[in-house]
Each structure stands twice: as structure tokens, then as C-alpha cells.
Amino acid sequence: MKIQGYGGNGWFITKMEQLINWGRSRSPWPLPYGTACCGIELMATMASGYDIARFGAERPSFSPRQADVLLEAGTITKKMTPVLKRIYDQMAEPKWVIAMGACACTGGVFRTYSTHQGIDSIIPVDIYIPGCPPRPEALLDGLVKLIHKIEKEHPLRKQAQALLQES
């Protein structure tokens, strides 16, 4: 966030959009949707040692209503696809999706009758993290990339456009 000093104490000037983005990017609360092996690495990332809390994601929201980032870690089978879609639809805007691991990105080694080949055909994905499973460092890198992405967004512009279209 760019801050311009304006004399005295307790004052600063910034853009509203940057303030919103600053708030959003510093607290990307994840919905840890760990279905397979990647879920264990996700647990390792949340535990001591890697400590995802350093990037503001220390509060796992198991309810999709309170989550900002859907952290999809693991294989999505065809049986699971309606569940994933439903969870994504239940999340409140703004929402982002991280596809963690080869299975979530493309189906990975499991090119079979029961595995869905990549979750991006069900829900939009912002960050892909390759690896089987990715190391915790890779997950943290993905999270940082998502934070940079959030910082560049224009939340008010979207709203203004929507308002203009309505009127």
C-alpha cells in the first residue's frame, strides 16, 4: 500500500482500493480442502516448522462461508466433483482458489476412469502448484504469489462498473 504522509500524527492518505487490497492480502484465510497426500503436506505447512501464519493464513476456516482461499490439496475424483462445486459456490466473494499438487492441477498420475483430470474444468483456479506432493516451500510460494495477485486487483472498479451497468 502506498502511503503519503500528510502532517501531524495519525494521518495518512491512500487509495480506498489499496486499503481494501491491503486488508485482503494480509489475511487470506484458507479453507483447507485436503483430500489426499497433499493434505499431509498442507498439515506440515500449517504446523510448526513452516508456519503458514507468517503470511496471515493461520486461521483455517472449515466453513466455506468464512473462507477467502479454497486450498484444494489432493485428488478430486468424479464422485467428489459435485461436492467441490458446491463448496466453491458457497464461498462468499471475494474468493480465490489454489490448486495444490499434480492431481488437482491435471489429474497427475491417475489417468483413470474415476479421477477428474484437473479441477479447473469445474471451478476457476488462480494459482497452480505443481509437485506430487509439492514441498511446503512451494505451497508458501504459491500463497505469496496469490497475495501479490490480490494486491493488483481493483475491487472498487468492478463495483463501479456493475453500478454503471445497472443505471
Binding site: K78, T81, P82, R111, T112, Y113, I122
Partner: peptide
């Protein structure tokens, strides 16, 4: 029945409907 030998490995394109039910 997927484990039968005449069933292809990559399936016959079965998918589940993605609507609320």
C-alpha cells in the same frame, strides 16, 4: 463395472451432474 477387463482404463466418459440436487 470398472475392473472388468473389457472396461477401458480411462472410462467411458461418465461424469456426475454438477447441479444442486
Amino acid at each position: 463395472h470398472p475392473l472388468r477387463k473389457d472396461y477401458p482404463l480411462e472410462g467411458k466418459g461418465e461424469t456426475r451432474r454438477l447441479v444442486y440436487e
